[in-house]
Design a protein around this nucleic acid. Structure first.
Length: 591
DNA sequence: TACAGTAGCGCG
DNA sequence: AAAGCGCGCTACTGTA
């Protein structure tokens, strides 16, 4: 209550504001001798409400107000456009945001300067607690003891009826942000997260540029594929109905189950989480009935048609470019996630999938540089485990195929066939996920390899006999998570897990590998941004792969820079990270 | 009509 | 009890 009395409701006009702000700054400076605190200011931009139907998104929402707080108690809010430029702090000041990526975009669209020095409570919150949500009101409740923070929707309803309600809401956003940063900055220090935090900060402008530039797609070719796919899917559908001897609703798991298990009397090999008869691809593969095979074929085409071919053109702007949202903190492991559209799940395996990738092109006169780390996670595993065999394969140079080596060890012979190499490959990748004999058996059978659970147990046992260092490493991570309740990756990023269940132990083990890989790529992205020539632009990241678009006559030089930057490992990292890079005209040609 | 949950599946 | 980590998207289902 006292706090509210302190707050003078100010309606700032253009003429007054410059003077008023100057005076306020001086007042606070007198009260507070801590120069660093004085140089801090929290800012929040307010925009019109997002509305999918009206096409108002975080990417284009118009700025309607600016709130500022220099101490977490006093705050201003202005809806007067002309005042914003005056209110914005100078470049000497450090500006605190909650989600700077969003506010930067809003400020830029409003023609306002984007602060040079900034902090971000959203990044901090993610690094300090990767397991929970990070909404500003939620954090205010949790860390500042605010009882019932007014939500945006509540305030927005009152915006025109009673502008002061909305103004107070906006001022509170700036106050909360300021006060959260006071808490988070010390906590980041305590948990030795400053280095990761700084990297995430440096990454922000890189990601923004990536999103702004976007990826060029060939909408014509997608339209052509769409026609073919429609015909093919109709053909498959009628074949399926012929085989079944009836028509049914192909997209309903329940209906598929009725046909397979009730009408044809086939046995259901698997149940869903809720106990229903599962008709997923693993189940259908095991059934192996001609009808099941056709349904699988139909599904893969239907999936690609509905998720990619039909949808991608809708995301294209007037230049034929899509602008996916890349979220640097979208995953608990520090990996990016991606949405609208998610280009991290663009098909890669089937022929139809490759046709989709062929639609990812570049502007005339340009080329794409597609660069990916080779066997990244296995190399990170080699670094962590310091396993003799892994290090020998990855550090001594020359051509080595780890999957063949593993196969040779497991099957105890020099000449291994394709099948045996395939088993070894699955184990090599599965290890980083904490695979069990049950899991290995299921996956090998799903790929069409005949084996038994007992045999799989022997494979895994033999793997660990060979890769003793890997076994030791996984054991150590297990002990750490059980003892401490958190684990750290190479850069100090944390994952907090109780470590009680086998699942949590696997998550901890995988985190070390996945998170270290993710941060190596983030580090490369930051470094790359400063080194690319004018006109060359990062346009996408797919976990261990970066895509750059540049002028054709720069392509050779850019490729060299990209490979050099990506391959540069940090001090103390013991395994080389080779990069495969290609100059191509479309994404599909990279493979 | 809106939203949450489930099943299934695309990627690394 | 589940049995491989991390995501987002679509279609369907159930509820209000």
């Amino acid at each position: 209550m006292e706090e509210n009395d302190l707050i003078k409701v100010t309606t700032v006009t253009t003429e007054e504001c410059e003077k008023a702000i100057k005076k306020e700054k001086e007042d606070i400076f007198e009260e507070n001798q801590d120069a660093e605190i004085c140089n801090l200011i929290a800012i929040d931009t307010e925009t019109e409400a997002f509305d999918k139907k009206l096409g108002i998104t975080p990417r284009n929402a118009k700025m309607i107000g600016l709130s500022l707080s220099q101490d977490g108690v006093l705050a201003d809010y202005s809806t007067d456009k002309k005042s914003w430029a005056f209110l914005m702090p100078d470049d000497e000041q450090t500006v605190i945001f909650h989600n700077a990526k969003f506010d930067f975009g809003v400020l830029r669209r409003a023609g306002l300067p984007v602060p040079q020095k900034f902090e971000d409570t959203l990044i901090a919150s993610h690094l300090l607690d990767e397991n929970n949500a990070h909404g500003l009101k939620l954090l205010a409740k949790k860390h500042l003891g605010i009882n019932d923070p007014v939500t945006f929707n509540e305030a927005d309803k009152m915006r025109l009826l009673d502008p002061e309600v909305f103004a107070e809401y906006a001022r509170n956003d700036a106050r909360y942000t300021f006060r959260l940063w006071e808490k988070f900055r010390t906590e980041l220090d305590k948990q030795e997260l400053k280095e990761v935090y700084e990297m995430e900060k440096q990454l922000l402008p890189v990601v923004m540029a990536m999103e702004t530039h976007g990826m060029k797609i060939d909408t014509d070719s997608l339209a052509a594929i769409s026609l073919e796919v429609k015909a093919e899917s109709a053909r498959l559908k009628s074949e399926i109905f012929d085989l079944a001897g009836m028509e049914f609703e192909l997209n309903k798991p329940l209906s598929v189950g009725v046909v397979l298990f009730d009408k044809l009397g086939l046995k259901c090999p698997k149940q869903t989480a809720k106990g229903a008869r599962s008709v997923d691809s693993e189940s259908l593969k095991e059934i192996a009935h001609p009808l099941a095979v056709k349904i699988l074929e139909y599904r893969s085409i239907d999936k690609l048609a509905n998720t990619f071919i039909k949808v991608l053109p809708k995301f294209a702007d007037e230049n034929g470019r899509i602008h996916p949202e890349f979220k640097p903190l979208g995953a608990a492991t520090g990996r990016f996630s991606c949405a609208d559209p998610n280009v991290q799940q663009i098909p890669n395996k089937s022929e139809l999938g490759k046709a989709v990738r062929r639609a990812f092109i570049c502007d005339a006169g340009n080329k794409l540089i597609v660069a990916d780390f080779s066997q990244m996670e296995l190399r990170v595993l080699a670094h962590y485990s310091q396993d003799e065999t892994l290090l020998k394969a990855y550090c001594t140079g020359g051509e080595t195929d780890l999957h063949t080596i593993t196969a040779q060890k497991i099957f105890a012979k020099e000449d291994v066939d394709k099948n045996e190499r395939g088993i070894a490959k699955m184990i090599n990748f599965g290890i980083a996920y904490g695979i069990t004999d049950v899991g290995l058996y299921r996956r090998l059978t799903a790929t069409g390899i005949t084996t038994t659970q007992g045999e799989c147990k022997r494979y895994i046992d033999d793997y660990f006999k060979t890769y003793k260092g890997v076994h030791k490493f996984l054991k150590k991570v297990k002990e750490t998570i059980q003892k401490r309740g958190y684990v750290k990756n190479f850069f100090g990023r944390r994952r907090r897990l109780k470590g009680f269940s086998s699942r949590e132990i696997r998550q901890a083990q995988n985190f070390i590998i996945q998170a270290t890989s993710a941060d190596l790529v983030k580090r490369a992205m930051v470094a790359l941004a400063g080194k690319l020539p004018e006109g060359a632009q990062l346009i996408s990241m797919i976990h261990d792969e970066l895509i750059i678009e540049c002028r054709s006559d720069h392509a050779e030089a850019v490729l060299k820079i990209v490979v050099e930057v990506m391959q540069d490992t940090p001090e103390g990292f013991t395994v080389p990270m080779p990069v495969d890079a290609k100059i191509v005209d479309c994404w599909a040609d990279a493979k």
